[in-house]
Amino acid sequence: MKISNRLKIISVSAGIVLAVTAALSFTTKLVDNPPVTGDLEAPAAVKEIFSRACYPCHSNTANLKWFDKLPGVASIVRNDILTARKHLNFSEWDKLAPAAREAALWEAYNMINSGTMPLPSYAAVHSDASVSAAELTTLRNYLLTKKKTVTAVKQDSIAQPAATLPNPLPTSLTGIQFMPEFRQWEVMSTTSRFDNTTMRVMYANPIAMKAIREKQIHPWPDGAVIAKVVWDKERGNDGYIYPGNFQNVQFMVRNAERYKSTDGWGYAKFETKTLKPTTTLLVAQSCATCHKAAAKTGGIFDLSTLN
């Protein structure tokens, strides 16, 4: 009698669970696949890697596995894919300007190479998503065909007009005000980009510099600030590359609580000689997403290492 009652309870419970699951399955909204308006154009070997590792989320060709459609999981998967498409969508490649397409490919490589993408949680259940060392080499070799060379020519010593700082100093929508005092800070590093034609000098404020020297960057202390000054490269008659047209100054400000949604860093960019603040909250999110590739140095890309 007791066993019979237990069986009844188990049967009824199982029935309820099954009914709820079935009901949720029918009501759960799966991600749809909008039309492909223009696909990535790349050599077959390169495209195959992106198709396999990136397209499941970063394209309009999502091919969900059975477990991606389970109630509870489906909404997470849907949200992940919609977020991924907003950041980069290989099926709407035609909507990107040529420079943005190339920038997206360099970023995609760096996200994969750092292990940030495909998301470890995704790769764990989609074994075909992982990218091998040989495939990374294939991607690198492809990108090197897109390496930029400097064609802008440096003019002979033309005195540039002195700077006049705007008054009041501009403030980004992320709440960061331009900090002219970065000129007093120590230089952290200098970089020469070949995925575009810019050169940069990075400065670290005393809190950031102390953290670097003491290797206390996991996490960086609140109050650490990194400034980055960006110029277009120009080639001189002597063959050397010099800073030409000033592009922008960027700041990363550490405040773990205030900038929680962007991994503890606040972002701001001040563009052209007028120092126009251009960083919206949405742009800051995009900055933070890309900076995940530098997780090993707490979100900072431009630290020189003992290679």
């Binding site: 760096n110 190479n113 990108l143 200098t190 970089t191 020469s192 980009r193 890309f301 431009d302 290679n307």
Partner: peptide, 17 residues
């Protein structure tokens, strides 16, 4: 003057070494 080296965290950039 520094030797330029690959930026370990960004392929597409050289950094002072």
């Amino acid at each position: 003057t520094y030797r330029e080296q690959d930026n370990k965290y960004w392929f597409g950039s050289y950094i002072n070494g």
